[in-house]
């Protein structure tokens, strides 16, 4: 028996919004420690990793490990039927071929349940090595979204360059060149408005705007986003899911042909 109840059901709605443009189907791996998802996009350029820890749920029971393969477009349609303040419960029997989503209004006066067929997905799991990144940049998630949206008008790629002075995002194309520089904030009233940079060595990498734009669908999840970069390795774009986990996107850099 698997059952996970989340009073703050809108977190799950937001997680799905942040995945559905990148992935069409994926497996949710459930264990007594929580729920995890790892999947590559269709072109194998990026990887998404989601963690939802058991202790972040209001009730969590997972008697035996199970992998629930789901069509994320369908899951997203179902979760859109939940109100933002609904309590969401996910339930499945052991070795079941379907999963049930239960949405309760906060006053318990409306209860809806939706059943969805599970899929058998033979998904490849990748080992992500522990990496000490050369630069770790934290900035407001909405700022990052805006920067990527703005620079996407100029070209297909964004160059992210981090030095001790700050971080620079650049794009070039037919209409011209765009550069956006962010300095580390000296002092801020609110922590979530800060730009902070932890840098071991300067690093410059080039990434496809298309993917960065898809990652910023997770902006609704968290006030801040963390970008971790090292030379010649994938960028990590991380959004926290409340205090229960994270969505991490890994994006392969553009390389010299």
């Amino acid at each position: 028996m698997f059952e996970a109840r989340l009073v703050q059901g809108n977190l799950l709605k937001k997680v799905l919004e942040s995945l559905k443009d990148l992935l069409t189907e994926a497996s949710w791996d459930c264990a007594d420690t929580g729920i995890q998802l790892q999947a590559m996009d269709n072109s194998h350029v990026s990887l998404v990793s989601v963690q939802l820890r058991a202790d972040g749920f209001d009730k969590f029971r997972c008697d035996r490990q199970l992998s629930m393969g789901m069509n994320l477009t369908s899951m997203s349609k179902i979760l859109r039927c939940a109100a933002n303040d609904d309590i969401i419960t996910i339930k499945a029997q052991d070795q079941a071929d379907n999963v049930t989503f239960v949405f309760e209004s906060p006053n318990q006066e409306k209860v809806a349940d939706y059943e969805m067929k599970l899929m058998n997905l033979d998904q490849e799991h990748l080992g992500i090595p522990e990496t000490d990144y050369a630069a770790v940049i934290k900035l407001p998630a909405a700022e990052f979204q805006r920067i990527i949206k703005d620079l996407s008008q100029f070209g297909e790629s964004v160059v992210i360059s981090c030095t001790k002075e700050g971080v620079k995002f650049s794009a070039a194309g037919d209409i011209g060149v765009g550069n956006i520089k962010l300095a580390q904030t000296a002092s801020v009233d609110k922590e979530e408005e800060a730009v902070t940079i932890e840098m071991q060595e300067p690093v410059t990498l080039t990434f496809a705007c298309r993917y960065l734009n898809m990652f910023t669908k997770a902006t609704c999840l968290a006030p801040q986003v963390t970008l971790s970069m090292s030379p010649e390795v994938p960028l990590v774009v991380e959004y926290k899911i409340g205090d229960m986990g994270h969505v991490r996107y890994y994006l392969a850099p553009k390389i010299e042909d």
Partner: peptide
Amino acid sequence: SRGQGVILQYFASH
């Protein structure tokens, strides 16, 4: 020009 790398170049499948 720059080509797009794939994630499998960096992370081992298991």
